[in-house]
Simulated scan of single mutants.
Amino acid sequence: MRRLLFLLVFGIVGGGVLVSLGAWQLRRLEWKQGVLAEIEARIAADPVALPTTPDPEADRYLPVRVAGTLGDAELHVLVSTRDLGAGYRIIAPFTTDAGRRILVDRGFIPTEAKARPRRTGAMEITGNLHWPQEIDGFTPDPERDKNIWFARDVPTLAAALDTEPVLLIARSQTDPDVTPLPVTTVGIPNDHLQYAVTWFGLALVWAMMTFYFLWRTRARPRS
Score class of each variant (00 low, 15 high):
Met1Glu: 10
Arg2Ala: 10
Phe6Trp: 10
Leu7Glu: 02
Leu8Gly: 03
Val13Thr: 15
Gly15Trp: 01
Gly16Ile: 09
Val17Arg: 09
Val19Thr: 12
Val19Asn: 03
Arg27Thr: 14
Arg27Gln: 15
Trp31Met: 10
Gln33Asp: 11
Leu36Gly: 04
Glu38His: 05
Ile39Asp: 07
Ala41Trp: 09
Ala44His: 09
Asp46Tyr: 08
Val48Tyr: 02
Leu50Pro: 00
Leu50Asp: 00
Thr52Ile: 12
Thr53Ile: 13
Thr53Glu: 15
Pro54Phe: 11
Pro54Trp: 10
Pro54Met: 06
Pro54Lys: 03
Pro56Ser: 12
Pro56Phe: 07
Pro56Arg: 06
Pro56Cys: 08
Ala58Met: 10
Asp59Leu: 04
Leu62Ser: 02
Leu62Pro: 01
Arg65His: 05
His76Pro: 07
His76Met: 15
His76Thr: 06
Leu78Lys: 10
Val79Asn: 10
Arg82Thr: 15
Arg82Val: 14
Asp83Trp: 03
Ala86His: 05
Tyr88Pro: 05
Tyr88Asp: 09
Ile91Tyr: 02
Phe94Cys: 04
Thr95Tyr: 04
Thr95Arg: 06
Thr95Gly: 01
Gly99His: 07
Arg100Cys: 07
Arg100His: 03
Ile102Cys: 02
Val104Ala: 05
Asp105Thr: 08
Gly107Ala: 14
Ile109Thr: 02
Pro110Lys: 06
Thr111Gly: 06
Thr111Pro: 01
Ala113Phe: 06
Lys114Phe: 08
Lys114Pro: 04
Lys114Asp: 02
Ala115Glu: 15
Arg116Phe: 14
Arg116Pro: 00
Thr120Asn: 10
Ala122Ser: 14
Ala122Pro: 03
Glu124Val: 14
Glu124Gly: 13
Ile125Ser: 00
Ile125Arg: 00
Thr126Cys: 04
Gly127Met: 05
Leu129Glu: 06
Leu129Ile: 07
His130Ile: 13
Trp131Phe: 07
Ile135Val: 15
Phe138Ile: 10
Thr139Cys: 08
Pro140Leu: 12
Ile148Thr: 09
Ile148Lys: 08
Asp153Lys: 01
Thr156Asp: 07
Thr156Cys: 02
Leu157Ala: 05
Leu157Asp: 04
Leu157Ile: 04
Leu157Lys: 05
Leu161Met: 12
Asp162His: 03
Asp162Val: 07
Glu164Lys: 02
Pro165Val: 07
Val166Gln: 00
Leu168Glu: 09
Ala170Asp: 14
Ala170Phe: 11
Arg171Pro: 00
Arg171Trp: 09
Ser172Trp: 06
Gln173Lys: 11
Gln173Ile: 14
Thr174Glu: 00
Asp175Pro: 08
Asp175Tyr: 13
Asp175Met: 13
Pro176Asn: 13
Asp177Asn: 10
Val183Met: 12
Thr184Ser: 13
Thr184Gly: 04
Val186Glu: 15
Val186Pro: 00
Asn190Ser: 12
Asn190Lys: 03
His192Lys: 13
Leu193His: 02
Gln194Leu: 14
Tyr195Glu: 12
Tyr195Lys: 10
Tyr195Gln: 11
Ala196Leu: 07
Val197Asn: 03
Thr198Arg: 01
Phe200Ser: 03
Phe200Trp: 12
Phe200Met: 09
Ala203Ser: 06
Val205Asp: 03
Val205His: 05
Ala207Ile: 04
Met209Arg: 01
Thr210Leu: 09
Thr210Arg: 08
Thr210Tyr: 09
Leu214Trp: 00
Arg218Phe: 12
Arg218Glu: 14
Arg220Thr: 12
Pro221Asp: 04
Arg222Ser: 05
Arg222Thr: 05
Arg222Lys: 13
Ser223Phe: 06
